[in-house]
């Protein structure tokens, strides 16, 4: 019954817009996780997907001005992308992704995101914000998918096919990651040859920090320029990560932090990297606690691999980053030479 009501309502939206619907996707936060899925799904249903540009100074400023001061940087960046997109599209896609597996959440901020965006004091296009909560089971999940598809068509079959296609795309994207490609390359399809130097550095943190080159101040490129091979958490296989986190004393209830913990513990165990850089957002809730888990584990393992935390916020300066990277890479290359001889 509820769904039928929605249909007519949604059809109304669609016909009012007329022609092809332009749906805006902010290039921020979970874009870095699920864009291939969303892109394929919307395109398949006949919408035009409009992506905001790469983060730049203007976008960041828009975001920091609109958001409350205490909000973490990635959410501010998200605000900026929303504001830069709002006049170019008929609707904005701001999903409420509550949980993507049983027994764990994403981050509280993702639970409140659509409401936070709606509270902005500007004219916004329609916000499409389906709730995805896998804790409630697959049935509810597919209901949300169906509801989302309902914005474009009432053909159930078409929605399911589009979603399936999206899942396939997501799968091949994730396979590229597990094969050792960097996330931004796998997303854009532009691959560059990886450095071949002897040093390997693992870079962990939220993908929306690491792979947003404006936010991370080109961290990865900087390392690669020094001929350092960069490994990220996405390259560690999910089986390994799952096994590691299932052995934790207390179950982690934030899905994306599992990747961070799993990758770091794995690297500490296998010494697969010469150093680890942990990128944290200033004022990030989960990060602040995960840092302790990591430090504790490193201590127990006798600090076998050096770890450097880098905290970024809107005031982070490039100069500081450069100096710290310099010092860190010098230190690990000296250590590597010493260990060899």
């Amino acid at each position: 019954m509820f769904i039928c009501v929605n249909w007519s309502y949604n059809l109304g939206v669609f016909t009012k817009v007329g022609g092809q619907m332009k749906i805006g996707v902010p290039r921020a936060l979970l874009y870095y996780k699920y864009f291939p899925l969303w892109d394929a799904f919307f395109s398949e249903l006949g919408a035009e997907v409009v992506l905001s540009p790469q983060t730049n100074k203007r976008i960041l400023n828009l975001g920091t001005e609109a958001a409350e001061n205490e909000v973490c940087l990635p959410v501010k960046v998200f605000y900026g992308h929303v504001l830069s997109l709002k006049d170019k599209v008929n609707a904005l896609f701001v999903p409420r992704i509550v949980s993507v597996e049983g027994g764990a959440y994403t981050c509280p901020k993702f639970l409140g995101l659509p409401d936070m965006i709606r509270a902005l004091d500007v004219d916004l296009p329609q916000i499409i914000s389906p709730t995805f909560d896998l804790k409630l089971g697959l049935w509810e999940f597919y209901r949300s998918v169906y509801e989302l598809g309902g914005f474009f068509t009432k053909n159930v079959f078409k929605i399911i096919m589009a979603f399936q296609k999206g899942l396939n795309k997501l799968n091949s994207f994730e396979n590229l990651l597990h094969d050792g490609h960097l996330l931004n390359e796998a997303l854009t399809g532009r691959f560059s040859p990886a450095p071949r130097g002897p040093l390997r550095i693992g870079v962990v943190g939220h993908p929306y920090n690491i792979f947003d080159s404006y936010v991370s101040m080109n961290l990865i490129e900087r390392l690669q320029k020094k001929d350092i091979r960069v490994l990220t958490a996405e390259m560690v296989s999910p089986e390994i990560i799952n096994e590691i986190v299932s052995n934790l004393q207390k179950k982690l209830f934030w899905t994306y932090e599992k990747d961070v913990v799993g990758a770091v513990f794995h690297w500490l165990d296998t010494r697969a990297v010469d150093g680890i850089i942990y990128v944290l957002s200033f004022a990030c809730g989960p990060d602040s606690l995960i840092q302790i888990l990591i430090e504790h584990e490193a201590k127990e393992k006798g600090f076998s691999v050096p770890i450097m935390p880098i905290v970024i916020d809107e005031h982070s300066g490039e100069a500081g980053l450069v100096t710290r990277l310099e010092a860190f890479t010098d230190m690990i290359s000296r250590k590597a030479v010493k260990e060899k001889s």
Binding site: E68, E70, V71, C107, P108, K109, D115, C284, G285
Partner: peptide, 10 residues
């Protein structure tokens, strides 16, 4: 840095 209250504040 309290997440839920920051969301409320927003």
């Amino acid at each position: 840095t309290c997440m839920p209250e920051i969301i409320a504040k927003s």
